[in-house]
Design a protein around this nucleic acid. Structure first.
Lengths: 129, 129, 129, 129
DNA sequence: GTGGTCTAGACCACC
DNA sequence: GTGGTCTAGACCACG
């Protein structure tokens, strides 16, 4: 429960993003049942309406589907999941590069900065272990 | 006038970001006078209150200061501006790398993706010319 | 409703000051929910935007935080509140003493004057009862 | 010229206050001629209109008078000046004590705080010399 | 003319 | 219901 939310972005988007990350990382797998809205809400310390909205978004992305009376399930179509992974990757990289270039950073600066940051974050992980 | 605003983010933040980019790129320089609130509002097609909020934010960031009855001026302290540039760079890179890693992308994928994207966007620029 | 506002200072600052005083006096406590913007505005006979500005200032001072759709809450961090008390005390005393000395009043005059004034105001309170 | 102005208060009031302090300290004496508006404005790095307003205020306070074509002069009536001194003293002390009590500070805290602050500021002066 | 404040009222996203 | 943003327009103090 040590993880709170960022005020600059809607909570439901932040939860959605976390779920997508878990899917992309493979922590949540194709066909798997998602927690009930009530459980998830309780677990996240959030209003059930908020989770409801998250699950709706997942459905529109064709990543999960809700079966009446049974709960929500991740799609069994693994292609959808790998598509999600590639979409996410391209979208995030595209936006990042666009922002950086608009701010006038040179390609060299960008590459070097990312490289450094990767090393920094990896070393932090290592020491955390 | 092809430049409108994105609905997913407050207008004042978008304008703030643009100004910061112009500062970072050196298009706006230390000590320079910014357009009056009313002029800027007219030019951007927004309400003066919105611009005032932007200028307030700039002031809180210690990037600009407002002089009674005279207008707003970019700080003459060039250190603040270079600080802004470095802050922006680190913040953007940090958030990007963090997001990517949390989504389970490998360092290799990240670097390669950024590299590709840079080439893509540069070639688009070239063809635009 | 005998309480109106002073024309020489912005309303939002006057309200901010009152809230800070209530916090410092302990009339408003850590973690407590503040009235909604609309309620407070109604109660103070002011426009909601004005109250919103007040709450924003409280947030920047890290004295209160706002939760989406839920309202604004005083920080639960009691240290922040005691910090506020000490800051206020030092700031007010520092400015006062600086002003008095710059006007050429001697330490003796200052101490004696404050002492007298305290007695005067206390006796007024007593008679009010 | 190292002294700038505070944004939270009108410049003309800040200048007015400085002049009053110089009068109260005796640096400016009864009957003395004040600098011309233009000179003063130049010296303070301020718009002449601003100084004009300051001199007007001094006139309304019956502290100075403007003689057409000759300039502005401090009143020769020394009683006015000693009245100014006492007014300033009472007003500043009264407001300070009122503010502190409204914030819930005890008389003991106030006296002790002022006492300490006096010592601090005096020692700073000493070391500055 | 300049910024600062305030009001009135609207719309929206969110919880 | 809650806060967040934006507009339109007004008034004021200031330089």
């Amino acid at each position: 429960m040590g993880e709170k939310f960022d005020n600059t972005q809607p909570i439901y988007l932040q939860i959605l993003q976390r779920l997508c990350q878990q899917l992309v990382r493979g922590e949540i797998k194709a066909g798997q049942k998602l927690p009930s809205i009530r459980d998830m809400a309780l677990h996240m310390g959030v209003n059930p309406n908020t989770i409801q909205r998250v699950y709706n978004e997942l459905e529109q992305l064709e990543i999960a589907e809700t079966r009446r009376g049974l709960g929500s399930y991740v799609t069994e179509n693994e292609e959808q999941l790998s598509r999600l992974r590639e979409d996410l990757k391209r979208k995030q990289i595209g936006r990042f590069v666009k922002d950086m270039r608009e701010s006038g950073f040179s390609p060299g600066e960008i590459i070097e900065g990312v490289d450094n940051e990767l090393k920094i974050q990896e070393s932090k992980d290592a020491e955390g272990v």
